[in-house]
Simulated assay, not measured.
Amino acid sequence: MSVTEAAFGLESLLTDEQRSWRDRARIAGAVIAETIDSDAESAVFRREYVRLLAGAGLIGMGIAGPGAGADAVSYGLACYELEAVDTSWRTFLSVQGPLAMGAIAKLGSPQQRERWLPGMAAGELLGCFCLTEPQGGSDSAALETTAVRDGGSWRISGVKRWIGLASVADVAVVWAKTAEGIRGFLVETTDPGFAATDITGKFALRASLQCDVVLDGARAEELPGATGLSAAFTCLTEARYGIAWGALGAARACLDAAIERSTAREVFGGPIGAKQLVQARLADAFVEFEKGMLLALHLASLKDAHALAPLPMSVGKLNNVREAIRIASAAREVLAGDGVTDEFPVMRHLANLEAVRTYEGTDDIHTLVIGRALTGLSAF
């Protein structure tokens, strides 16, 4: 068991079923961990791990397929365990599940759900969620991608950026501006009007795929329930929930590495863990981990009660990612110079967490969401 988890007493807060889901994710994560250092170094996305996660029932947990009966804590634990290995694979779970599958399940027609969800849950079909645009970033309302009617279907033209899985996806959930307002659509990626190119030169999320997408008159079918940006935000809220848990997995991995090193490395006549300044760093990091985990458990109770509103989700995403970065940074300090080498996972986690800090709402955006909720005044 993780030293950090043992000190927190996490095991006693989980049911047998939740532990079972946690263990499935941990076993899958152990397989991914065997190659993650080289995969990150070489920027390799291993498609075979998709089937691994599907076989464990982890794809689309709570939506469709083998994991449909999982509660919110179980899904959170899956995100937590995968991100303890690498953010890239928790990101996969978020894009394939709450974003792509979630949009089809919540907003699609019965025919669309039947067409796509079983294959996606099995890992046979992949999806992506095309919302972010190069010039818009956090300003999702400023979409420039447009959709126009073409007989019984639609044609979409525009550019999207930082779209996870787009170059390997079979179906894209695309958000575009229409004469009636913003709507969501499905585009099959085999359409000649859809093109995705992997973004290279990344220092984060190197074992996953993020892409530039160009839509040039791509044929699309509308998602019946995807009217307005609020529909897109329901999917984003679900994805942010997984992030709040996942970031703590990265934090745990870093803190465990620092704790172990603090008892093994000796300087000035004894282990560095016996020095007050080292203990202070570890203690502060542990306190933030525990607070973040309690917050994640609270969010889970809200989610299971169908009461997970944007405000608590912004608190969860802002706090847990921000504190995970601080924990990883503190761990790097304890590891000293060795902390910047691949002997430890800390720098890889730090780089990944910086990407997580940016996507699904930056710190600034979530701060303003919270401020607006508290004052009733928009500062955007």
Rank of each mutant, 00 (worst) to 15 (best):
P118N: 10
T263F: 08
A70Y: 05
A226K: 13
G65N: 09
E354G: 02
S301Y: 02
A204V: 12
A56I: 04
A307E: 07
P98N: 02
F380D: 12
S140F: 12
A351D: 09
A56S: 13
R90Y: 00
E238Q: 15
M120K: 14
V95T: 14
A328Y: 04
L294C: 07
L10D: 04
I327A: 02
G269S: 01
R372G: 07
A231I: 06
F233V: 05
A64E: 11
G119F: 01
K275V: 12
I272P: 06
A43C: 13
Q279K: 13
P345H: 03
R149E: 03
G137Y: 07
K317G: 00
P312T: 00
V95L: 04
S329N: 11
G108M: 09
K303L: 06
S12R: 14
R46F: 00
L53R: 09
T15L: 00
L107N: 07
L223N: 11
Q112K: 07
S378L: 10
L223D: 05
D191Q: 13
F194E: 12
E333L: 11
A72T: 10
H306P: 00
N320S: 01
V267D: 05
C130S: 09
V187E: 06
A218Y: 01
R261G: 00
G273C: 12
A264Q: 15
K202Q: 14
K106I: 04
T35L: 08
A220S: 08
S157P: 10
A264L: 12
A84E: 08
A336L: 12
V173Y: 04
S138H: 10
L117A: 08
V187M: 09
A195V: 15
V340H: 12
F286K: 13
R22C: 05
A103I: 07
V334C: 05
G60W: 00
G228A: 03
N320E: 00
M101V: 08
A355N: 11
A25W: 01
T200H: 02
R219N: 10
I243L: 05
I156K: 01
E290Q: 10
E222C: 12
G152P: 02
S167L: 03
A251K: 02
L215P: 13
S378T: 13
P271L: 02
F185Q: 06
T190M: 10
E124A: 13
D338L: 14
G242M: 03
K275H: 15
M313L: 08
L186E: 07
L82F: 11
S38R: 15
A305G: 04
A231D: 04
I36T: 08
P66T: 08
R183I: 11
C211D: 15
V31P: 11
K160R: 15
R47V: 14
A84S: 15
V278G: 09
L353P: 03
A105N: 13
A251S: 03
F289S: 07
L299K: 02
P134N: 14
G62C: 07
G201F: 02
S301Q: 10
C128F: 03
R240A: 01
P224H: 10
S378I: 06
